[in-house]
Design a protein around this nucleic acid. Structure first.
Length: 154
DNA sequence: GCCAACGTTGGC
DNA sequence: GCCAACGTTGGC
């Protein structure tokens, strides 16, 4: 199956591209996803080698800040079992975990943040899930959108 | 901080 | 299964 592209949202003050850049081998666990639609993408469709835009949300400068690749596909998100975690889910259990994580490795920090407003104003991006459905934290990106967004950096 | 959009919960 | 109430996301 062909490589697919994704967009993952993060609140940079909690876990953003800087955290990923500072991690050993620039590898991080993408956890804390607690929305079924977003979970289903992670669990059922995200594959090894797929590429991902990292998007910063709920902050002063919202937009795409870089890219990463999938280095480990879905496995149970350990934070759901940890009562100390903000992402603890008492209704989940180890026999039948409700939530999953994937591991990603940073591939590029963009030379500039591409603001949401710029994405919204670009005609070729008007059908992006990001723009059509604003409240989805992991979402597919088409190959054309992937390429268009990279062209904005030049 | 406001508020629109939308997901979740729970009574019936 | 419906739907009102409530909670969360996320841009501005």
């Amino acid at each position: 199956m062909a490589k697919q592209y994704w967009l993952f949202k993060a609140e940079p003050h909690i876990y953003g591209i800087d955290h990923l850049a500072a991690a050993p081998d620039k590898i991080g666990r993408w956890d804390g996803i607690r929305n079924y639609q977003a979970r289903n993408f992670l669990r059922d469709q995200v594959k090894l080698g797929d590429e991902v835009f990292i998007y910063h949300s709920s902050c002063k400068n919202v937009g795409i800040v870089g890219t990463a690749k999938i280095i480990k596909t879905a496995y149970p998100d350990p934070t759901q079992f940890d009562p100390e975690s903000d992402y603890y889910d008492p209704k989940s259990n180890r026999e039948n975990p409700r939530w999953v994580s994937v591991d990603i490795q940073l591939t590029k920090i963009f030379t500039r943040l591409i603001p949401l407003a710029e994405l919204k104003s670009h005609p070729a991006l008007e059908n992006m899930v990001l723009i059509k459905q604003s409240r989805l934290s992991t979402q597919p990106v088409s190959a054309q959108e992937w390429s268009t967004i990279h062209s904005l950096l030049k």
